[in-house]
Structure formats: structure tokens, C-alpha cells
Amino acid sequence: MENLDSQTIITLATIIIAGVGIVFGTALPAIVEGRAAVKALEGIARQPEAAGPLRTTLLIAMALLESTAIYVLLVILILLFANPLLDRFFP
């Protein structure tokens, strides 16, 4: 590792963090969204006449949960395509 210059180290760290971050950042919201969908489906199965309001509420809740995954994606896009550390230390 001693013969790597610091630009390579920053790039390597960015790539590793991007991979790990996108895995956790999409897996956790997916699990939570699955739970929300399961609960909504149970509610629809128990009370089929409540399907309409449950569907719209589920969509809004899904959107709010999905936005956490979008935040992770945006941070990783910034890291990959417009890395501020590389711009700052190696202009």
C-alpha cells in the first residue's frame, strides 16, 4: 500500500464506499417497504372494502420510504461523478 499515491487511495475508497453504500442504502428501504406492503395487503385481505384508501396511503408511504434510498443514490452519484475530495485536493 505504500507505493500508492493518495489520489489512487481516495479513488479506491470512493469505489468501495459506493459499492457498500448502494447495497445497504437500497436493501434496507426495500425491506421496510416490503413490510409496509405486507401490512397493507393484510389490511386489504381483512377488509376488502378499504382497498382504495389503503392503496393511496400505501403509495404515499412508499414514496416517503423510497426517498431515503434516493438520498443514498444521490450521495453516491456525487461521490462517483463529482467527487469533492478529488476536486479539493487535486485540482
Binding site: A63, L64, E66, S67, I70, Y71, L73, L74, L77
Partner: peptide, 16 residues
């Protein structure tokens, strides 16, 4: 801010 980033992130991720 969340409204902005949600719409932008979904569209840009689809395009990417």
C-alpha cells in the same frame, strides 16, 4: 428539499 430530491433522483437514476 425531499420533494425536490425525490423527483430528481428518480428521473436521473432511471436515465443513468
Amino acid at each position: 428539499l425531499a420533494l425536490t430530491l425525490r423527483l430528481f433522483g428518480n428521473i436521473i437514476s432511471g436515465e443513468i
